[in-house]
Amino acid sequence: MVNNENHSQIHPMTLPLTSLVPGQIASVCAIHVGEALQHRLHAMGFRAGKRVRLIRQAAFRGPLHVRIDSTDIIIRHRDAHCIELRLT
């Protein structure tokens, strides 16, 4: 299952990773992707409760540059949209 239909499931207190502004921090609460990507995201540090900071976003809806602890990650806008965060 991928993004759009998940909009309805998103709790009002939460927001997708793509809604952060540079410098903002929020913690991971759910990841709405297939199993394979879920494993990869887990291994990269996207785990429930982890604090994610948006560093910057590329022009033309390009990828996002985020930081979790001391790992920097580049993630495409479409994939980042499936990661649901809670503001802390």
């Binding site: 991928v2 992707v33 990507l37 990869r40 995201l41 990269m44 990828p63 540059h65 790992t71 920097d72 990650i73 580049i74 993630i75 495409r76 479409r78 994939d79």
Partner: peptide, 10 residues
């Protein structure tokens, strides 16, 4: 539809 998620090393 491959996702794109990579590490950014220093």
């Amino acid at each position: 539809e491959e996702p794109f998620v990579i590490e950014l090393p220093p």
